[in-house]
Design a protein around this nucleic acid. Structure first.
Lengths: 207, 207, 207, 207
DNA sequence: TATGAATGAGGATTCATTCAT
DNA sequence: GATGAATGAATCCTCATTCAT
């Protein structure tokens, strides 16, 4: 037993997706350790047994849900931002809104990413997945930089730094508001740092 | 009825500390949810029952261990660094080694901080403790800045940014090596960003 | 999240009843505090986990078993006795056998009621249930008295006294035999006391 | 080990009595199963270890406390009532106040007897002790009856019935008030029943 | 395929009792 | 004698996973 079915039929795919959505939603809302498979099955409108036909175990639900979620995130929301950039010169004008978009996306749709960050730190499988996601994103940033004519020196490091700066800003955005600090001031600094890495400091655009 | 003993006698303190150390070590190594109280007791060389004389519950072990750990960290390792600074002019010369010290301390003694970060994201009590720790540290940075003659404008934000930059650098240091990136390059950038916030860019010292 | 299943299917009902019976039996035999859930499950021939699908917790087993037991007791054994009475005049002829029936029922099927009485004294939920049972029984006695034409003066008190006399006689029946006393003598006295309350003393029937 | 010390020295006796009093008080207040030995020791102002020098185990505290308590109860409060009776003729005049005294004693000082009744039903040792107490009390009633000139026919049964009537009245007194019934009415009936057994009905005294 | 009943290992916590000091 | 720290068995309940239907 334990053979995982990769569903082909329409109804099966639909069922699998319902489990995925319900599982992801519940895990992000209530936490991985506070969500049990029976709840997920119930929320998905399926029986508890069927879960194990589509997923290896509880963690597999999370991993596959993350995959789907991040796949959507990367292709439909992040990469498209970079593809819009066609020349170095546009950066000062476009970067502020890109960065702002990231922060908003984080706050309004990915606030629950905390749970994932936590799980990534606690669980090797989740960590591996998050690394894979970060690597792909960094690679796209790197490729964009090369496409825009940046030299190849330390490009990997620069891509990494940019991506981490954006992420840390997102994480901090929650904290900063909690501490009643001036988020715009901090946002502006992160923006300048990225601009600095992209060698377009002094050119920045106020928005 | 579950009255927690605050041990005064030497042997009791010793036993309590053994539980604390064993608990902290195991939780950081194996994860909070993967460590059970029986293991902690065994590792500490005590019976399982005695744990509940010194600690309210399992989480209390973690919280008290964190308290001890961070108290030591703050007073003996972090704050002393700031106290050594007596004038703005010293910053370019001293900051690199301070930052490097942080990273090393993180890598050699606090690498497991990941687990704590994770728990802080998952558990409200741990989160509260971590916030308290961050607030105190940021306050000391802020006070140091004022003592060194920095204006009060956006000092809170600057202190927060400096501390987060240092922390994110520490976190990234693990990642960066894992990805075979040039850590020195990234370290240098973080250093410059902090210098920039402290208005001593251009003065930096190579080391 | 611990949702209790109200079983509809035959096999489920059967299993739930097995747990109920095994739990009731063991609790009455060995005492509530000396019976653990694992034993109950084992005696019922089920796994320990399934118990919590049908019952909220250990006490719920007891409470539900009592409910079933007393429901049967009241409707099928006690109330039917009162319904048979159609006029005051019948009482002297019928009361002796009714009372005797109670005592026998107690001795042969409800001797374990001691355990329940004890639990009722120790536990608020059990106490509440026992009160509910007593109230309903007293109410039926009261209604019967009114139906038979007794005045309404102190009817509630009289119903209570009759019921307590019957119960105390049942309890005493065990003790009395243990002490080698003449139970018939005591039985006769209790009977007379009830007759007295029902104003039919002097009319009594020897049996 | 495990040798129980029968203390002779004044300080030891005092310590033993403190444990006895504290244990009895706590057990009656909070229930046997909800009171632990550490609490008893603390309330008695002694160490938890010393308890086991004076008492075999936890139950032994209860049993010895009951012994002391009932010894006092019987000799100083109950038997003295019977000794005051010097002739049959006094009964109608004195019985009401004796009975009333019992009920009050129960309500004001022995209300907690519920806990003991419960334990007697649950535990064989406690049951045995309660039986011993009842037997002695019934014997004294019996002896009093003989002394007052009652014939010996069914005297044991009569003594038992009188004692149980008094006890049941005490127990019911709590219930009856809870149910908003007229206690005086019920009290009067119990009194009459006892009078009846003592062949002095019709002679009763209103009070 | 699908169901959901059933399994049973696992874990935090309590507490009567013992024992080193 | 006295202390109170230490022991460790015992127990209720949860839940990921399996399996009979």
């Amino acid at each position: 037993m334990g053979i995982i079915k990769e569903p082909k039929q329409e109804r099966s795919i639909e069922k699998r997706n319902k489990i995925l959505e319900a599982g992801y939603k519940l895990i992000l809302e209530k936490g991985y350790y506070n969500t049990n498979t029976a709840e997920i099955a119930k929320a998905a409108g399926v029986s508890s047994g069927i879960v194990y036909r589509y997923f290896k175990d509880k963690k597999d639900i999370l991993l596959q849900a993350m995959q789907a979620h991040f796949e959507d995130l990367m292709y439909n929301r992040i990469f498209v931002q970079f593809e819009n950039l066609t020349s170095k010169e546009e950066i000062p004008a476009l970067l502020p809104s890109i960065l702002q978009y990231f922060v908003e996306m984080h706050n309004y749709g990915l606030k629950e990413i905390n749970e994932l960050t936590a799980l990534a730190l606690l669980d090797d499988d989740v960590q591996e997945f998050m690394e894979y996601f970060r690597n792909r994103t960094c690679t796209v940033i790197e490729e964009t930089m090369i496409r825009l004519g940046y030299g190849e020196e330390h490009t990997k490091e620069k891509a990494f730094m940019i991506w981490q700066l954006a992420n840390h800003l997102c994480d901090d955005s929650v904290l900063v508001r909690h501490l009643n600090l001036d988020f715009d001031f901090i946002f502006q600094h992160s923006l300048e740092q990225i601009m600095d890495i992209l060698e377009c400091k002094g050119l920045e655009h106020t928005f």
